[in-house]
């Protein structure tokens, strides 16, 4: 199967101070790497989850795919076409196949437009002639399980779950091949979260759309994604099939994330593995393996030698000197 989206060695850098200031400070490189040598593949009809703590570069990577951040190095291929360095006009033609659901559901909806205008706006932006916008709005509302009466409502009248559904409806308007969902369930209650995820799963089965889900909620990842990538300081530390990673995490950071997730059972034995400290600053990346200051299994080499990405089995990659293999 050819992949819908293929990202290779992507690097996204942001300037942290101006060149004069950098010169005065004797800093030869006034940039930070928000995303660094990230590679992934996403097949049609599949869901990939990007997981990591805040500041790991998940959103930056997602935004780069739809052209909101410019990568400095590497390639993003969508349906075989290279998207980086594509002229604006040509990019726009591809852009209609990729939709984004932004992180803040209410904040990403204009407070001055009614829902009908909000969900049919993509047609206007891409100058697509639709016979009956009214009917189209109704179709989209129906798709996300809202009654047609919602067409005349303003964003502030929606609850969190409803606003999220409108976000899904708007992303679906142009029947995209790929939807990037940035924290699709953050701030939702468990029951509403289930509704939104079921909706996304149903749409995937009906339309074959692929999802790239950006989240820090591992409980959700397990149930909805086929593959997952764990990010730390802008790099992928582990990438593979969700089932494999949950069955046997190989990177200590993955294991730490999994065990930082207490089970809703007071008699469940509490995990002994506990990370100390916080995610380091991108301005001062640790040497060697960047996870070594927090790693519970750190060994002397880790602070000196940068691990190379290895592939312990097909479709699974890992950046660790001493993966957690079961003996």
């Amino acid at each position: 199967m050819s992949s819908l989206l293929e990202i290779k060695d992507l690097r996204i850098r942001f300037q942290s101070k101006n060149r004069l200031q950098a010169l005065l400070d004797g800093d030869s490189d006034p940039f930070i790497d928000a995303v660094c040598s990230a590679s992934l593949k996403l097949n049609s009809g599949e869901t990939l989850a990007l997981v990591g703590e805040s500041g790991a570069g998940k959103t930056t990577l997602g935004r780069a795919i739809i052209g909101l951040n410019q990568p400095q190095e590497g390639s993003i291929r969508f349906q075989g076409q290279e998207l980086t360095r594509l002229p604006d006009r040509a990019f726009k033609a591809f852009r209609r196949n990729i939709a984004m659901m932004f992180q803040d559901p209410v904040g990403s909806l204009s407070p001055r437009l009614r829902v009908r205008s909000l969900i049919t706006e993509p047609f206007k932006i891409h100058k697509i002639q639709v016979k009956d916008l009214e009917a189209e709005a109704e179709r989209l509302l129906n798709l996300v399980g809202l009654p047609p009466s919602f067409a005349t409502v303003y964003a502030h009248q929606l609850s969190g779950g409803q606003a999220r559904r409108i976000g899904v409806a708007r992303a679906l308007a142009l029947s995209p091949k790929l939807i990037i969902a940035d924290e699709p369930t953050a701030g939702l209650d468990v029951s509403v979260q289930g509704e939104i995820l079921n909706l996304m799963n149903r749409l995937q089965e009906e339309t074959g759309v692929s999802f790239l889900i950006i989240t820090h909620n591992l409980n959700v990842v397990r149930h909805i994604s086929h593959r997952m990538a764990i990010m730390y300081l802008g790099r992928f530390v582990e990438y593979g099939l969700t089932d494999d990673i949950f069955a046997q995490p190989l990177h200590p950071y993955t294991l730490a994330l999994l065990s930082a997730n207490p089970s809703p059972d007071p008699d469940q034995p509490k995990s002994e593995l506990q990370l100390e400290g916080e995610i380091p600053s991108l301005l001062k990346r640790p040497t060697g393996c960047e996870f070594h200051p927090r790693c519970p299994f750190v060994r002397p080499d880790c602070s000196r030698i940068t691990p190379v990405t290895s592939s312990p089995r097909a479709g699974h990659s890992l950046a660790c000197h001493y993966p957690l293999l079961k003996d």
């Binding site: 468990v190 289930g194 509704e195 409980n219 149930h223």
Partner: peptide, 21 residues
């Protein structure tokens, strides 16, 4: 009971459809 059942962390079997209230 419904609240506990809806929490995806409490669902041991992998499922594509999560329970809702």
């Amino acid at each position: 009971r419904a609240l506990l059942e809806c929490d995806p962390a409490g669902i041991k079997e992998k499922t594509r459809y999560l329970p809702t209230i």
